[in-house]
Write a protein that binds this DNA or RNA. Structure first.
Lengths: 113, 113
DNA sequence: CCGTATCCCCACGGATACTG
DNA sequence: CAGTATCCGTGGGGATACGG
């Protein structure tokens, strides 16, 4: 989706642009568990391609959500971690997650009223 | 965006599928102010086309977020309103909106740390 | 191990015109 | 007023191969 701003110049739209990318929320979740290396992330996200993982990480880094740390050794060693900003975004997403569990994953009786 | 489920079968991904569509959050907001007619929505969402508004509304209806009520008169009269489910989704989105206002719209000092 | 570099597909949304 | 009906362009993401 190219989620350019819709009608309202609201915070929700603005925030959603930062998680616009098929795997970004998953990456946020994966990193919320702690620092991870590229290969570890790839393994945590079955189905993602290296190209997409790399480009998503670059964008999230540019958006200040993720910090990338390179250790200059052989073989290469790179670590990814959430910034405070990324961590707080993940927390702001939690009510949505709760809603989804309750209203989508667990079928609730008032589903279609 | 085709936001099919990512790595985690989590509520966040599930919820985000329901607001996957460029204008859906805006529609949610517009309807959170009260019942609206098709033409009124179109006017509240400058830039949206009739085709997209109609298809988004139908998807949201199928997802149980919106209720459509037809009055059989001439000229046609159709009203759209949020269901309890749509209303609660909108509420679950609020923390994200607050985060966006604080961390994106209003530039915050710890933006890139 | 950690990525680029290409090529390609197709779903989504925009534009436009038309109708009960 | 409240929508269909078409056609079309775009770009994000998948597949694959290769490189430091």
């Amino acid at each position: 989706m190219a989620r350019r701003p819709g009608a309202f110049e609201c915070g929700t739209e603005a925030a959603m642009e930062l998680i616009d990318g098929k795997w970004k929320v998953s990456i946020l979740w994966a990193l919320s568990e702690g620092v991870r290396r590229f290969g570890a992330l790839r393994r945590m996200l079955p189905g993602i391609t290296e190209k997409v993982l790399a480009s998503h990480l670059r964008e999230m880094e540019a958006d200040g959500l993720v910090r990338r740390e390179v250790f200059d050794v052989v073989p290469p060693h790179v670590e990814y971690a959430l910034t405070p900003r990324g961590l707080s975004l993940n927390e702001a997403l939690e009510p949505l997650g709760v809603w989804g569990e309750r209203h989508v994953l667990g079928q609730v009786e008032d589903a279609l009223r």
